Amino acid sequence: MGMDLELEGRRVLVTAGTKGIGAAIVKLFRELGADVMTTARSRPDQEPEDRFVTADLSTAEGCEALVHAVRDRFQGLDILIHALGGSTAPSGGFSALDEEVWRSELDLNLLSAVRLDRALVPLMADQGAGVVIHITSIQNRLPLPESTTAYAAAKAALSTYSKSLSKEVAPKGIRVIRVSPGWTETESAVALADRIAEQAGTDYEGGKQIIMDSLGGIPIGRPSKPVEVANLVAFLASPKAASITGAEYLIDGGTVPVS
């Protein structure tokens, strides 16, 4: 990025930072001089051991392990970015979603953030400053009934929770912001487009078009790139955005029609 975002030396935690949007955020923040810790269920070889925690954040135990690591290694926290999210729910509409599926979607997409915030936001309050960014999704506005009902509902709950949290902690010097990506060309998105293309007897670009059509079209004609989402997150986390809190920023190529 061209401008100095004043992120050098900032203590940053990014969840799910080894793939997709999370990996792009980790890479950019490190390039900007931030001290970044990240986490996932397994550690890639290139991740430094003292800045990586192996944890399953869909469980209370995994969140607790990560919190202990942050306290031990950082003794505080300046920026918390919740990039974790996803879905393993089956297709087939609401009737295909049993109790276990609902619990899994909520644990991953909502409760992981709630648990980490509950433990780490007080550290920010003690120092009188901090930034929390929740990565939500345009699915909370444009759910796909066949396949994303539980995921969309969990992300909608995360958005509402985030707004409420922002009102509570703003007087303590903590900003809470939502970033809502549309379809983004991550590794999993590429794999999905490839699968759809194979089923439809077309190529990767054809598979991408099928997905974009299912979303009602993307006016810019392509999915977002992970680095584009990371750029937005970096600006919002920086002192350049010091008066921004409680807001939700869509980055979806115009997919969601807003007035």
Rank of each mutant, 00 (worst) to 15 (best):
3 M>G: 07
4 D>M: 11
5 L>M: 14
8 E>Y: 05
14 V>G: 04
19 K>F: 11
21 I>T: 06
31 E>S: 09
33 G>E: 06
40 A>C: 07
47 E>A: 15
49 E>D: 10
49 E>W: 07
51 R>T: 15
53 V>H: 14
55 A>F: 01
55 A>H: 04
59 T>E: 10
60 A>E: 07
61 E>N: 12
62 G>M: 03
63 C>W: 00
69 A>W: 04
71 R>Y: 10
74 F>V: 06
75 Q>W: 13
76 G>P: 12
77 L>R: 02
77 L>P: 00
79 I>L: 12
85 G>A: 03
99 E>R: 07
101 V>N: 09
108 L>G: 00
108 L>W: 03
110 L>T: 01
111 L>A: 02
114 V>W: 02
115 R>N: 14
120 L>T: 04
128 G>V: 12
135 I>T: 07
136 T>C: 08
138 I>E: 04
139 Q>H: 10
143 P>C: 12
145 P>I: 06
149 T>V: 14
161 Y>I: 04
163 K>D: 06
166 S>V: 12
172 K>L: 06
177 I>F: 02
178 R>P: 14
179 V>I: 00
179 V>M: 01
180 S>E: 01
180 S>P: 00
184 T>Y: 02
190 V>K: 00
192 L>Q: 11
198 E>Q: 09
198 E>L: 11
199 Q>S: 10
204 Y>E: 11
205 E>K: 05
213 D>I: 04
227 V>Q: 09
228 E>P: 15
231 N>Y: 13
237 A>I: 05
239 P>V: 06
247 A>V: 10
251 I>M: 15
253 G>M: 13
257 P>C: 15
257 P>I: 11
258 V>A: 13
